[in-house]
Amino acid sequence: MSVTTYRENPVEQFLRTDRMPHIWCPGCGIGTSVNCFARAVLECGIPLDKLAIVSGIGCTGRVAGYLRLDSFHTTHGRAIPFATGLKLANPELSVVVYSGDGDLAAIGGNHLIHAARRNMDIKVICVNNFNYGMTGGQVAPTTHFGRLATTTPYGSPEIPFNLPHLVASCGAVFVARWTTYHVVQLQRSMVKALKKKGFAFIEVLAPCPTLYMRRNRLGSSVDMMKLFKEKSVVKHGIDTKEVAITNYEDPIIVGEFVDTERPTWLDNYNEIMKKRLGDKYVPWGVNNG
C-alpha cells in the first residue's frame, strides 16, 4: 500500500482561494511576482496578522484583493499615501504597497518620490509591464521609446522613467530590480526589503502578453522570458544612473542597486520631539499599542 502525502502549496495560505480564478491573463507576469512575494513573506517570518497590503488601481492593483492579509485596494495612484497613514497610525504593522508602473509612477509619481524622500517605512513592489493593462494598453511612463500603445499608435515619443534611479535619488534605502525570470533572486530581494527598515523599492519587470507584447509583436511571454534571460545583466550596487531601460533592445540591468541605512521619517520625528519636548514626549510607535 502506498502512502500519498498531500503537500499544500505554501502560497495557498496567502490566497483568498474563494476569489479564484483571478482576473489575470495567461502568461501575465503579475502572478509570478505574487508567488515570489508569498514565499518571501513566509521566509522572513513576519506575522501574517501584522502585514498589510495596499494597492492602487490597475492589473497589479488587484494583488491586494487576492492576498489573505489585511488588504486595501485604494484609488488610482494613491496607495502610497494610504500606506503612509496606515503605517504612521500603527507603526507595528508591516506595510507593503503592491502596484503597477502606471499607478505608482504616473498618477502616483508625486507620492512615490515624497515617500522615498521621507524614508517612510513602507515597502513598494512595482510591477512594470511597460503599459496600462487594465484599461487596454495605453502608453505608460515606462513604455519603451518608440513602442506602440493604443494612445501612441505610431510609437511613443517619450523617454521612460528610470524608476530605480528616481527613487534612489530621492533617498530610498533599498532599491532592486528583477524580472519575472529571476524568481529566486526576486524572492531573496523581497525578503531583504521586508526586513529592511525604511523605504524599500523593488521594480519587477513583467510580461504583459495580452497587450504590450502582442501590439508590439514581441511574441509570447515565453519569448519575453527568453529575452529577460538573455538581456539581463546582474550588477549589484551599480549607480542607478546606469540602469535606464529606454529601448527594448538594450541590455536590462538587474540586481540590488541600493542597500543602505538612514533614519526613517518616524525615527526622525521621535528624535526631534524628544530633543525639543524632553520627558513630556512619549515616542510614537514604541509600545503605544
Binding site: F82, G85, L86, L88
Partner: peptide, 8 residues
C-alpha cells in the same frame, strides 16, 4: 487618503 489609512 493618508487619513483613511490612519483610520484603518
Amino acid at each position: 487618503i493618508a487619513l483613511q489609512g490612519a483610520v484603518w
